[in-house]
């Protein structure tokens, strides 16, 4: 089984799409790519989720929320946290990236470009407010573990950037 692929029973998708990251409520866990498998086995839904960041306090909440959402749809479930393969920002779907941008969080760049903006101060990230690329890194670490803090030098708006992982 290719573990970088998701294995999700299509019947479960609408239910799982109702669950979102408590820290980024506009982003469903499906679009975040944290659900790696969800299959109905002997009447019980077995879900595998993988943490975004090791210290992400949202994971426990996400597990509980999945259980609740499935319960509401009359499914019993078992949630497992798996570590392999490690989550990557590449798993955020195009819909997820758009939701992030609309919410005011710049979506992650490719790994090389990410290094350039975080290390060498290159201006590649578009301001989520005015779309200007005249943006500057304020801090490699932002309001949560997954974000860096940026500032737009045109409209002066500070905003978060979802770091590449």
């Amino acid at each position: 089984m290719n573990k970088t692929q998701q294995h999700i029973d299509p019947i479960l998708i609408p239910i799982l799409e109702q669950v979102s990251d408590p820290e980024i409520p506009v982003l469903s866990i499906m679009d975040m790519g944290v659900v790696r498998s969800a299959l109905i086995i002997n009447g019980v839904v077995e879900v595998e989720i993988t943490p975004t960041y090791s210290g992400c306090p949202a994971m426990d909440v996400i597990g509980d929320d999945i259980e609740k959402a499935l319960k509401n749809a009359s499914y019993d479930s078992r949630i497992d946290l798996i570590l392999h393969p490690a989550w990557t920002t590449d798993w955020i779907t195009p819909i997820g990236r758009k939701a992030l941008e609309d919410y005011g969080i710049a979506a992650p760049l490719e790994a090389d470009a990410d290094k350039e903006v975080l290390l060498n101060g290159k201006r590649l990230i578009k301001c989520t407010n005015c779309r200007s690329q005249n943006t500057k890194l304020v801090s490699q670490f932002g309001s949560t573990a997954c974000k860096a803090l940026f500032k737009c030098e045109d409209c002066q708006e500070p905003f978060d950037y979802f770091k590449c992982l």
């Binding site: 943490p51 960041y53 090791s54 210290g55 992400c56 306090p57 570590l83 304020v138 801090s139 490699q140 670490f141 932002g142 309001s143 949560t144 573990a145 803090l149």
Partner: peptide, 20 residues
């Protein structure tokens, strides 16, 4: 503020790793 947040984020990463 920025370095404070950076240091505590590093702390959070490390403690998260410890949990695993």
């Amino acid at each position: 503020l920025e370095t404070d947040i950076a240091c505590t984020n590093i702390s959070l990463d490390l403690l998260g790793q410890v949990r695993s």
